[in-house]
Nucleic acid binder design. Structure first.
Length: 265
DNA sequence: AAACTACTCAACCGCATAGGT
DNA sequence: TACCTATGCGGTTGAGTAGTT
């Protein structure tokens, strides 16, 4: 929507205008293939005349999988209202309680729909009353604030890569129960990735253009992994997440690299 | 139908912070 | 320790759209 491009901004050949379909497709296909490893270098490798910031914003607010479009539900409105009354304008934290909504969405919705309503109901957060994160929530809001706690834990674990909901959005995965959520959470905590996937990604990113190589498997990219897990038989397994152009898929495979034989490497 | 107004929301800006050198 | 770079966040802007007169 913002169309103005100050002359100073044009110096570096960085485009500032609404994204077109072609640009979206370039960004999506790049991320599908290589994942998110460096926003600032991404535009150059993806062939986009955009800043890394702009690419990140476009992806986070508009292009990433499982973003909800359309109207906010009553429940979502309530979560925003109650959360804002305690947290103030901490949109990213509030948005983390609303799966599929970006902080920008929540912020816009607040300003356009909820601000007036909240002030009428005296729900606007006073600066002096902003929540002390170390204190317990009051009893009347506790239930609302706790609704998304399991998802929050998972979001913390996966940080900027993908959310718990996205992780389980694959059509290959049936509905996930609360017990399964906690089981997954317990499995994932305290595990440390040796970083080999990142190393491999960088290696390919650097080598492919130079050597004119193709990844052996470009329709199913390894997205993340967690080592040091054990299955029900106490066998050592590695939890791997893949992105197959449409969905995230989670699989547990034997930790022994020799047992990892699905043609990826 | 035209003009005006209010609203929506995509996108940019500036700042704070973290991590690397 | 200082500096640099990358990232994330909240504030703000302004074109497009919907509603009203």
């Amino acid at each position: 929507m913002r169309m103005k491009s100050p002359k100073s901004d044009m110096k570096k050949g960085i485009k500032k205008a609404p994204w077109c379909v072609e640009e979206d497709q370039k960004l999506i296909s790049y991320i599908n293939r290589y994942g998110i490893w460096n926003w600032s270098h991404m535009p150059r490798f993806a062939g986009l005349s955009r800043s890394g910031k702009s690419c990140r914003l476009r992806w986070m607010n508009y292009l990433r999988p499982n973003l909800k479009r359309g109207k906010f539900s009553k429940e979502e409105e309530e979560i925003i209202l109650v959360s804002h009354s305690h947290l103030g304008n901490r949109w990213s934290i509030i948005a983390s309680r609303l799966p599929g909504r970006s902080d920008n969405d929540v912020k816009n919705y607040w300003h356009s729909h909820l601000k007036k309503r909240a002030s009428k109901q005296n729900l606007v957060c006073e600066k002096t009353e902003q929540i002390d994160m170390t204190s317990s929530p009051t009893s009347d809001t506790e239930s609302v604030l706790n609704i998304q706690q399991p998802a929050d834990h998972m979001n913390d674990y996966f940080e900027s890569t993908f959310t718990f909901e996205e992780h389980y959005s694959s059509s290959n995965c049936s509905a996930i129960t609360t017990d399964q959520q906690f089981e997954f959470q317990d499995n994932c905590y305290n595990t440390v990735s040796p970083g080999t996937i990142d190393d491999l990604q960088c290696f390919w990113d650097l080598l492919c253009p130079v050597e004119n190589l193709e990844l052996r498997n470009n329709h199913l990219d390894l997205f993340s992994s967690a080592y040091g897990l054990h299955d029900s038989n106490n066998e050592s397994v590695t939890s791997c997440s893949f992105y197959n152009s449409n969905n995230y898929i989670s699989r547990k495979v034997p930790s022994d690299p020799n047992g990892f034989d699905d043609g990826l490497f």
